[in-house]
Amino acid sequence: MIGFATKRRRRLDLRGAALGLVLGMGLTVACPSIASAQQICAADLNNNGDAADEGEQASCLATTSGAWLCPIQQVDCVADAVGQYSCPVGAQYACVVKSTGGPPACSPNQCADLATNPIVEEPPMDDPGTEPNGAIDADGNCLGQIEIFSGRGMRCRPPGLSTTFSNCCKDKGKIVKDGMGSSIGSIGTKIAVAKGVFTGMKAAYVAFKAGATASEAASAGAHALIVGLDPTSLAVSLAINFMMEFLFAGCDSQDMEAAMLRSSGMCHEIGSYCTSSFLGLCLQKARGNCCFNTKLGRIIQEQGRPQLKAFNGNLWGTAKKPMCRGFTPEEFQALDFSKIDLSEYYADIEARAQSDIRQDMGERVNAYLKAVNP
């Protein structure tokens, strides 16, 4: 059982030498030197097959003998009648004295050197989706492959090492609504919502990394998100609060993008996979998703794919490599819509209609008041 610990930080780059120490994990850990920060350990305490949960990684402690002691499951050694110490969890584990003093202690978990056993990191998914503006002929006919209700593969990360144990998949309520943007006027190849969310989240993340406050970064992200889109399709205040919370939590731009679309009901989760591992032990997981430009697109994809032979045996790909393509025109025509339950979407439309009316009335009243009281 081996693993890793890192500093709890608000900033988002936790790779390389910046990994350091994890603090506040329920462990009593002395503040080590830079050298000791490279000796790390981990254990699968809850027997779920990984060491990605809080308290399952730690920085090893220096000892007077030059060895290292893992603080996870550390216990004091027991002395016999002649003063010889032994480890109560197993005679094979050495009793050592910490450099900070105290009685001899031991741990069943072994330490490893980060310098010689580097952490393996998986980069975020890179799925641009289907290009919605392909070449056309003189008559306006699309020359490429038309995809209906196409999506993009994205990941978000639950609490773990790389996210400083914050939940970057957290559901924060519906922020993006179906029909966002005038560019989505047809059932065709558009994925403008997903790309619009990507633009906004990237702008917020870049601004935050450049030194902007979370509030400034979130405002920049919201501005980039609503440019060219119908502002009534976006809960701007919720989007700003969402970005501020996720930036402070240590989430990256794809975490935020996926979480916002997931919260809005536009993603199908495929499963989990490991994004950060050390000597074969997983330290950080991610949830792979196919995210679509509308909630309606997600519903039809989920219920339509099982009807088509082209998807038999491989409905969604894998969590690490999602298959998020849209339907071809022939596949779409072959769908039996009598077997597709759209009640979730109808309920959403009815609820949204009332809220949109109230929002529109409020905006009109505010605009009037500003006009008559400049």
Rank of each mutant, 00 (worst) to 15 (best):
P104K: 03
C87Q: 05
V96F: 04
D113V: 00
S86Y: 15
G101T: 13
P88E: 02
G90H: 12
P103N: 14
C95G: 02
P104R: 03
G102I: 13
G101S: 08
V120N: 01
S86E: 09
A115Q: 08
N109G: 10
E121C: 09
I119N: 00
Q110H: 10
N117T: 09
V120W: 01
T116K: 01
C95P: 04
D113Y: 02
C95V: 04
C106P: 08
A105L: 04
P104L: 01
V96G: 05
Q110F: 12
E121L: 15
A115Y: 05
S99A: 14
D113R: 00
S99F: 13
N109W: 14
C95I: 04
S107L: 12
V96C: 07
C111R: 03
N109E: 12
T116N: 00
A94T: 09
Q84F: 14
V97Y: 06
G102W: 07
S86V: 10
Y93M: 13
G101P: 07
T100Q: 09
Q92P: 09
V89A: 10
A91F: 14
G101V: 14
G101Q: 10
N117P: 01
E121F: 15
P108Y: 02
D113C: 02
A91T: 11
A112H: 05
S86Q: 13
Y85V: 10
A115H: 05
A94P: 08
V97Q: 11
I119V: 14
G102Y: 05
G102M: 07
S99D: 14
C106A: 11
G101F: 08
C87F: 04
C106L: 15
P104I: 00
E121Q: 12
P104F: 01
L114F: 04
C111G: 02
P108H: 00
C95S: 03
Q84M: 13
A105F: 01
L114Q: 05
V89S: 09
Q92N: 09
N117W: 06
A112E: 05
V89K: 09
P108T: 00
Q110C: 12
Y93G: 07
Q92C: 10
Q92F: 10
A91G: 08
G101M: 10
C87G: 05
Q110N: 11
A94D: 06
Q84N: 11
I119F: 03
A91H: 13
V96R: 11
K98F: 12
C111Y: 01
Q84C: 09
T116D: 00
V120Y: 02
C95E: 04
C106Q: 14
C95Q: 03
A105W: 03
A112M: 11
V97P: 05
P103S: 15
L114S: 03
T116Y: 00
G90R: 11
S86R: 13
A94G: 06
E121T: 15
N117M: 07
